[in-house]
Simulated scan of single mutants.
Amino acid sequence: MPEPDLNLLIALDVLLADGSVAGAARRLGLSPSAMSRTLSRLREATGDPLLVRAGRAMVLTPHAQALRQRTQNAVQEARAVLRPSSVQPDFSTLQRTFTIRANDGFVEAFGASLIAAATAAAPRVCLRFVPKLEKTAAYLRDGSADLEIGVLGEMGPEVRVQALFRDRFVGVVRPGHPLATQREVTAEQYTAFGHVVATRRGRARGPVDEALAASGLERTIVAVVPSFPAALAVARASDLIALVPASLLGNQSEQHELPASTAAFVAMHAFELPVRTGEITISQMWHPRVEVDPVHRWLRQLARTVCHERRGDDRAALATATGSPTTPRSL
């Protein structure tokens, strides 16, 4: 069956409300003859005359009378569908689970703050963090993930991206380690000890090794673990040096006590690397399908705010821990 012309609904609504072909034509900006042809099409579509002569005026048929309110409701609902949403969510009663793909380091550094901020505004919201084992847009595209947080990879041209903060890598050793007393660690001292490296894809060597090689040096990697928190735990119980993002430490340094829940980080000593490596940008990514969803927009703004606030506090604390001032950079 051919699809009905839904434009006829608007004409029918005006005709039934006005009760006049000439009056409906004026309201719709049509000529009387064009409105008469539209009425003919409506009569054919509904199988009813709709408007009939009664002396010099026209009156609605019983079927037209029955359609009048239904037609008005249908037109109003259609217009509401095609109008930008103005309804603001009630966060006090909102029940929704957001799935966020992020690595363990982000969850360790920012998870608690983000959860606290979310539940303060929306007590019934649940943030479900899942591991990010690969960089792919598939989870955002099929809706199984609402948000992805990390370093931008090949995510596809349609994926929306917003920078959250810039990060850098630092060296970390246990308290009492020979390097823990050094105000500045040299490249020779750095390569004199074994190293534990965190990687999910098995690539143990990277920019640090390239920078060391330019000086004719090489570090000895004796352990590879799947996450930065695991690297910290290994370094805490050995003389190995861990390489971790500065955001993972924050104020979790030798001079600043940690929450009991992060025992693996307690009393660690952080230091600036003796070689220069580029900063990394941590971003949040989402599918355009949820671009204008007010609840999703609220979550994105919350993540950005939490990261900015935490990074502002963490920069000063890490500068104290490493003995080197850091200058915040705008994103």
Rank of each mutant, 00 (worst) to 15 (best):
A117D: 02
M285R: 06
R311H: 09
E279Y: 11
T262V: 15
Q69D: 10
A74G: 02
R41S: 14
F271Q: 12
R141H: 11
T38W: 03
P229Q: 11
T320Q: 14
P259C: 02
G216M: 05
G153N: 13
A235G: 06
G323F: 04
R160E: 13
Q69I: 08
R43E: 12
P274H: 04
R311F: 01
I221L: 06
S247N: 06
E309A: 06
Q69V: 09
E309K: 01
F98G: 00
V295Q: 07
S92E: 05
A138Y: 01
S283D: 13
H287G: 03
A116Y: 05
L273Q: 11
L232P: 00
V306H: 03
L6H: 10
A180Y: 04
G111Y: 04
A120V: 00
S247R: 04
M35T: 07
S33D: 15
L8A: 04
P49I: 09
E291C: 00
A187F: 01
A214N: 07
S227Y: 13
R83A: 14
Q255A: 09
M1I: 02
A64W: 09
N103E: 13
R83T: 13
V295C: 02
A214S: 13
P207S: 12
C126W: 15
S36R: 14
P84F: 04
A316H: 13
R141Y: 06
G206T: 07
P245M: 00
A78I: 09
E218V: 10
A45G: 04
L9K: 01
E254S: 12
I280H: 00
F265W: 12
T191K: 06
T191W: 08
G105N: 05
A121Y: 08
L232M: 07
A230Q: 15
E257F: 15
A25Y: 01
G176Q: 12
P62K: 04
T97N: 07
S324N: 14
S238Y: 10
T277M: 11
R310W: 04
V172G: 05
R26T: 14
A235L: 05
M58Y: 11
P245F: 00
A204L: 00
S20L: 01
P62Y: 00
Q72W: 06
A138K: 09
A321G: 12
H296Q: 08
L94D: 09
L318K: 03
V185I: 14
A54R: 13
I10V: 12
A263N: 10
